[in-house]
Design a binder for these strands. Structure first.
Lengths: 194, 194
DNA sequence: CTTGCAACATACCGAGCGGTTGGTTATGAT
DNA sequence: ATCATAACCAACCGCTCGGTATGTTGCAAG
């Protein structure tokens, strides 16, 4: 990787971390510059504005990380169990910073979706992508599922609950609350089967 | 009401609206001053700082509004149906601004709970209060409910999902998504019964 | 009629923000 | 070797923010 590309990647990584910790608006460019040990000129050579940097973080860091994670949970023989073990392992692996900071995408969604159209469209697109992935995975085992399920609705329900659980544990700083909601969510998901 | 008290209430009302629309940090005192047609001295006569104003808005505007709303849904013969009609009526009555701005408490929770301890404790206390209300209401019809339910867990699950649904519709600007999640949530709630 | 304090108003402060400008250094093609 | 351009730096700009210091008004008790 060229030096320039290295610099760019470094900016993206640090910016992703800062945005995760403090949100987009509260993220200060000068903090990023200090952490990267570069000048403001360097940053503005690679990105035209703060918000363009934000978009790049979303597209190049958050989105692939997020989709890969879900794919690994869904691309198994039984996606119902895949999701449950995925969620359960989240409750165990969840580090302190993740409890406090929440899901980066969920945060960005809360903060920026109704403020900036660029973020909103990117978030929306990703949500639809994720929803489709879940629906596809569930349809593969359609024969094992209860009749009359609205799979898209079910999928949005699952995602909404997971986000709600993250927010809950984040605001209470309480991993236990997250575990409880996840436990109930797993009960719901397993009850989708016949 | 005295003039001074009138001024104070006016500040609280306007601040509540601004915070709902733009979040706490992004709410500018000068905007509040303009809308109230008062000076900065007036505001700082009634409130010692921006964050104290925020606390007052939380305690005197948001909390009572919120708890009253839930109480009216729970204080009926059948709280399961009470919740379902409550949620369903939300999907119908929900104004455009509510879709875009989301629930004021949910927003504040997302934005401030992990940043400011004062907000966190207030939010936490209210969450526990709400959870207890739901548990109490459900226990009243315990005989009609399935055996082995963890009611507190169920209650947190409901609240988490509702918050997640709000966030989802807010970021997508799509009332339909909210409706779908609520529909699925009502299915879940009604399935709590035997 | 005075005095005191609540209830405001006005003007200003320092800090931090995102962004710009003008310059310097490194690199790679010709 | 030259030279355009990519890559980067340092200084500065305008602006808005929350907060403060000081001044003014009006009412109400003594």
């Amino acid at each position: 990787m060229s030096d320039a590309e290295q610099t760019r990647q470094n900016i993206l990584t640090v910016a992703a971390d800062e945005i995760h910790q403090h949100g987009f608006k509260a993220t200060s460019l000068s903090v990023i510059l200090n952490r990267c040990e570069i000048s403001k000129g360097a940053l503005y050579h690679h990105f035209t504005s703060k918000i363009e940097l934000g978009y790049a973080v979303f597209e190049e860091i958050y989105t692939p990380m997020f989709l890969d994670l879900w794919q690994s949970a869904l691309a198994v023989e039984d996606p119902v169990e895949g999701l449950c073990t995925f969620f359960t392992s989240m409750t165990e692996q969840m580090s302190c910073s993740e409890v406090v900071c929440g899901c980066p995408l969920n945060n960005l969604c809360e903060e920026m979706a109704n403020v900036d159209e660029g973020f909103r469209l990117r978030i929306l697109s990703m949500q639809e992508q994720l929803n489709q992935s879940i629906v596809d995975a569930l349809e593969k085992i359609n024969d094992d599922l209860r009749d009359g399920l609205a799979l898209s609705q079910v999928s949005y329900f699952i995602v909404a609950t997971l986000n709600g659980a993250t927010t809950l544990s984040k605001s209470s700083r309480n991993k236990e609350l997250f575990k409880q909601v996840i436990a109930e969510l797993c009960l719901y998901i397993r009850a989708l089967k016949k």
